[in-house]
Design a protein around this nucleic acid. Structure first.
Lengths: 139, 139
DNA sequence: CTAATTGCAAAAGCTTTGCAGCGCA
DNA sequence: TGCGCTGCAAAGCTTTTGCAATTAG
């Protein structure tokens, strides 16, 4: 259970932390900015300070519960850290975020890093364009 | 010549714009934050306002003269837009930025986008880790 | 009970913007 | 000369932080 994960991270199981995690687990959306989380919590009747959300999400990130994504736009977006790695495609028109994985790309990446003596720890691969729903509007 | 490019972009060839472009053309470093450019210009004896540098680099970006890179860190980095596309590896220890290209990855990307009905316009592929010079320090 | 956590508000970065004066064409 | 450009400083955003009050264990 996810609440155990909070404790296992050495964090106290507080109301704010539990509710923030719930937003990620219960919302149909997978990706949330801090603002998103804040609004969602307000709609659920929980007025949690922005500062707390920033702090908690950073703690969750360190604990490996969530992943911070730095798309353009000047603000961070978080997603629940699933066990399966994936990369992202973002629609420049509607903002929808799609996920993709390709083992071949992952392998080539590793190979390139190795060839250069680079110890690969992480990567972010983002494709930007227009999704199926928005293509027509932009030809 | 690069100064023509400024004019071709419909921009007046002013001192600030010419000097900012020079920093990119003459510096051994390929990647510069706005702060970098500002300091470099100061060292060359040109005190150009930060606001101007932000404005000019944005205009250069629109004109296709430079590319804005959004690595993590909360600030943008710019590079001269060469004719050859490439992606980046950044060392988490020393901050050095390396470039790489792989045609196979590019192809697979296209294929994935097509399969999903996604019109691919751009992408950013960033590998993070420790470079050859810094590996030892971090095992 | 005690240390961890939250709320609030202030402050810190990076970036944008308004406006008066300056400079290129 | 006229419009575009720059400088300066103010303001905008996202994110961080200090501190007193609150709460989990």
């Amino acid at each position: 259970m996810s609440k155990d994960a909070i404790r296992e991270a050495g964090l106290k199981l507080t109301k704010p932390r539990a509710m923030i995690l719930e937003v990620f687990e219960q919302s149909p959306e997978k990706h949330h900015s801090v603002e998103d989380v804040h609004k969602e919590l307000l709609e659920r009747g929980h007025d949690i300070g922005l500062g707390t959300i920033y702090r908690v999400l950073t703690q969750f990130e360190v604990a490996g519960l969530v992943k911070r994504l730095n798309f353009e736009g000047g603000y961070a977006v978080f997603e629940l850290k699933s066990n399966s790695h994936h990369d992202h495609m973002v629609c420049l028109e509607c903002g929808r975020i799609y996920e993709f994985v390709d083992s071949e790309i992952e392998e080539i990446q590793e190979r390139i890093a190795n060839e250069r003596g680079f110890r690969l720890l992480d990567h972010s691969h983002l494709m930007q364009g227009y999704c199926w729903y928005c293509r027509e509007k932009n030809q």
